[in-house]
Design a protein around this nucleic acid. Structure first.
Lengths: 121, 121
DNA sequence: TACAAAAATTAGCCTCGGCTAATTTTTACG
DNA sequence: CGTAAAAATTAGCCGAGGCTAATTTTTGTA
């Protein structure tokens, strides 16, 4: 079983190529949100020494509640990333869960990106 | 009451500027979907003489059903645009509704864009 | 220290844009 | 002309990312 079927007719290959392109755009839009938050938070901390949700909301042009929901979602994603990595290393589910709690807040963006690559996400 | 308060402190003005920028990005993402459809449909008609939903789906990398839903939404938007324009011209709701039915399928993208500008959308 | 204002969180709702599965309509052809 | 295959539609689900309103927690200050 090969991934990129060189024997398929050209118009089908073209359609698949196009589909992958649109898919990448959709995924990029997803990532943008996280990146906007990271950037804004860094900027606020740089300037004011802290990053209040209320200030993020003002700068993003959304409500307080929306910022809260989004941050929850993003930190949930971060948590799962660390936990799944630990399980890949052989931790049992319970241990992975507990350790992830302790680790995740000390994990830089770079390390998180590395974990993502490692897990193939 | 003025729109852009020149007397507001600089950091608030900056926050508003940033909020508008994020808002524009969100709106741009919305428009992209419609543009992708218009472009793909034109391309398919150009090449094959027709634009089947099933082909759009393949090229967009989504399912048949998704294409159907999205097209429904977009044509609903088009319908409302024409109808609201007629009402702006003084048509009563009933007349506007009926006439929009007849008109909307003969309206080019350019005209629709003009209507949008006229209605301030 | 008490309390008012500010910030954060929670609850409940919406739309968009995805999906699968089932059904109906259209098309092509023997 | 009938029918099987293809295409389209419908029903019902999900998650992301918005909202408002209400509540709880935190913070600054008299």
């Amino acid at each position: 079983m090969i991934d990129r079927d060189e024997t398929a007719p050209p118009h089908l290959r073209e359609a698949k190529r196009q589909a992958r392109s649109f898919e990448r755009v959709r995924q990029a839009h997803q990532r943008e949100v996280a990146e906007d938050y990271v950037e804004l938070i860094a900027d606020l901390i740089d300037v004011t020494g802290e990053a209040r949700a209320v200030d993020l909301a003002e700068r993003l042009g959304v409500t307080n509640a929306t910022v809260n929901n989004t941050l929850n979602r993003l930190t949930r994603e971060r948590h799962c990333l660390v936990r799944d990595f630990l399980m890949q290393l052989g931790d049992d589910a319970e241990t992975a869960k507990i350790d992830a709690e302790g680790i995740e807040h000390h994990t830089s963006e770079k390390t998180l990106a590395a974990l993502k690559r490692f897990l193939g996400r």
